[in-house]
Amino acid sequence: MFRVIVKRLLTGVLVMWGAASLIFLIVRVAPGDPVTILLGTDASAEQIAELTASLGLDRPLLSQYLTYLTDVARLDFGRSYLLGQPAMPEVLERVPATAELMLTSTAIAVVVGLALGLLAGSRPGSIVDRIVSACTIALQSFPTFWVGIMLILAFALAFRMLPSAGAGTPAHLVLPSVTLALPFTAIVARLTRTSVAETMGEPYIQTARSKGLTERQVLAGHALRNSLIPVVTVVGLHMGGLMGGAVIVENVFAWPGLGSLIVDAVSNRDYAVVQAATFLIAGIVMLFNLVTDLVYSQLDPRIRLDGAV
């Protein structure tokens, strides 16, 4: 087990090096030079030369890349020119808000998704199953930003029940987290449905029924428990997708998290923040994948990580 973790972490370091290099490449290939961005267009030639030298932009590309990598290893991405502060602390400051949003959404998606999947999967082909299946297709297809706006229209403007933007109170959390959770709920529901429907045909379900257990006990004790394993995996592996969704949802609801920071930084070419935030997100996604694999192997003794996964 220990060896597996070490091996995965080493692969992870390799992936993070690749990710950092990719970010470096995109920023260097992009038009617009950082000196003009920092100084504006009416700077003197002296100022430009001075800043170019102090940023190291006059050195060969390879030497710039090596300096960049050592800086990345120390999580130093330079200063944000918009905020005037080192970029990484600014990015880290936004993490709790995004984490709050993602955790709430995950909780909603798992609870509602499991319930819907169980409802549909226990009676495959029934009217309930068809309705749930149709809903999940719709929820997965609707664009999140539009769903968010429609929810604002209904619950913030028409019924005046919830605030439409910002953060601070639990009421502020409702609309963004529900919006973010909807497509994820559909995924969990579809997965649970398939898995429960399959399990219901297993011999041990028949055994449980013939022992005289009620249908409810059979569902909760036998069918649901086995369906939890794929759900855990999909939750873990979906953190990347959820993060991507959060970028858009945060912008719809002016939620002060990583997503709105990144879009602001990208629009203003604040590359220090863009680099710090994308690097951090890549790291978080990678850690989640690692933890998912480990939890998965603990939940299901049939899976061994040493072999091919």
Partner: peptide
């Protein structure tokens, strides 16, 4: 592996925003 470390939409945003 490296590309999948980024959420797809994030990489798209960064590339599209840079140009």
């Amino acid at each position: 592996d490296i590309l999948l470390a980024f959420p797809a939409i994030l990489l798209t945003i960064v590339i599209a925003g840079a140009f």
